[in-house]
Amino acid sequence: MISFSNVTKQHKGAPKPALDAVSLEIERGDFVFLVGASGSGKSTLLRLMLREEIASRGDLFVLGQNLVTIPSRKVPALRRKMGVVFQDFRLLPNKTVFQNVAFSLEVIGKSSAYIADAVPEVLRLVGLEEKADRLPNELSGGEQQRVALARAIVNKPDLLLADEPTGNLDPATSAGIVSLLEKINQNGTTIVMATHDVGIVDRLKRRVIELRGGVIVRDDKKSGYETALPITDQVPISSDTEPEQGNEPEQANEPEQGNEPESRISSTDQAEEQE
């Protein structure tokens, strides 16, 4: 499904590569968390899979296509088999919930009959059939992210990429989004989710890939967020990577998302309460 082999991404003018010889395999139906500090290369990884960026070196296959050599004109067809959600939702403010979801089908040329069927169905799946006529600014953050999810999956993608989808949401709402992602995953969609949300990663016990300074330092099946510490000492690459980043992931996480320790604790609590 997804295969990175020795993929390096060097941005112009940057002293160090954003990704340095990364190799990984993701199978169909997997649910994978990407964790790591800001600047560790999570977003670059996702952008490479979307072919928003092109790898500088190495081979990258997604959905059977070599993304290094694929011609531009074939990229749209590839992206139709993928869905993406972002931390900032990226909804169109002047369109209703229904129109936002319908837009993504209109622009790939689906018939209005198909749209009239598919959109209500996916809105029911994300639990927003009642709010189809609302504008995004009339919705809560969690509801907006559900709309974004509905838009991402309405075309039944094989792969869903999520870039910190719960980054702007409170823990309870985040848990709702994640259970929705699990439901989508159970329907056969592969999910790759970059996140800082400790509670979610710990609770789901799925595969976790940790990046640090553009290198994979951990790739565990059924792991949690925090287990990185003991393992990083054993992985030879990590010891010489970036001392200034600190060996403690907690420390590295703190400055960026406003993800304070308290909120993390509460997120764990909340997630447990939900269950």
Partner: peptide, 13 residues
């Protein structure tokens, strides 16, 4: 914004 979404969902050039 619209263009960004169109590109992401795979609308052709």
């Amino acid at each position: 914004r619209e263009i960004g979404i169109m590109r992401l969902v795979g609308a052709s050039n």
